[in-house]
């Protein structure tokens, strides 16, 4: 059975002034998948996600979400359509409490949906419930990542984009984060994951794309990429 296309990127080119950061890439994400975008630092991964969520604009091509071209829709309206972005470095609101961060994640939802959303977040991450009244800046790195993920879930997204959720976390916490991401997929969420940690990312992904200096150089199922010589050499340490 053919699965539904959730996201379809076609020929996007993104510039920062004279810097050509993303060079005409195209890729698709299907319903219920974890798709990874892997690549070294500076490859253009964050730029790609920022373009999809509308923070930066592509000069060309199209970005279709659920069959609708969103390439010129304002960022806050893209969230309303069910596409949420957990940005690099988590970017939680450090001066707001844990609970207020979750409320911001639910900014566009009906008032009646906010409490159930929080309860769901607390079931997923009981640590957050213990700290609900605490200022988010006092959380540990791992807890902040949990909060960033929960905050994004508050909007009840169809597609979640996560930018380097493992960044700066201890290995044991990284494993927990990846378990959560798998669990989210099993709960029916579709996930576009950006990672430098290719091994971890490929271990939970269905498919992946390799990004090198703004170009997609390889793509395939996660299994194919894990077995590919060039990926092993460049990203998996031989």
């Amino acid at each position: 059975m053919e699965k539904n296309k959730v996201l379809s990127i076609s020929d996007i080119n993104v510039y920062y002034g004279p810097i050509h950061a993303v060079k005409g890439i195209s890729f698709d994400v299907y319903d219920g998948e974890i798709v990874s975008l892997i690549g070294a630092n500076g490859a253009g991964k964050s730029t790609t996600l920022d373009t999809v969520s509308g923070l930066i604009r592509s000069k060309t091509g199209s970005i279709e979400f659920m069959g609708e071209n969103i390439s010129s829709v304002a960022p806050h309206k893209i969230v309303a359509k069910g596409l949420v972005h957990v940005p690099e470095g988590r970017r939680i609101f450090l001066q707001l409490t844990v609970e207020e961060n979750l409320e911001m994640g639910a900014f566009l939802r009906d008032k009646k949906d906010v409490e159930p959303g929080k309860e769901r977040a607390f079931r997923l991450f009981p640590r957050l419930e213990e700290r609900r009244k605490q200022i988010a800046g006092t959380l540990s790195g791992g807890e902040q990542q949990m909060l960033a993920i929960s905050r994004a879930l508050m909007s009840d997204p169809k597609l979640m984009m996560m930018d380097e959720p493992s960044m700066g976390l201890a290995p044991i916490i990284v494993e927990q984060v990846f378990e959560i991401i798998e669990k989210l997929r099993d709960d029916g969420h579709t996930i576009l994951l950006v990672e430098q940690n290719a091994k971890m990312a490929l271990s939970i992904s269905d498919r992946a794309y390799v990004l090198e200096t703004g170009n997609i150089t390889l793509s395939g199922t996660a299994k194919e990429l894990l077995e590919s010589d060039s990926v092993r050499k460049a990203y998996l340490g031989g």
Binding site: L55, P75, H76, F93, L94, R151, S155
Partner: peptide, 24 residues
Amino acid sequence: TKMGKAMRAVSEDRGAAQLMGINI
């Protein structure tokens, strides 16, 4: 209030606030 909290969020990180669906 929701608007007041959104203002604090925008104050701290405009980009992240947009990603929450807040109209800057």
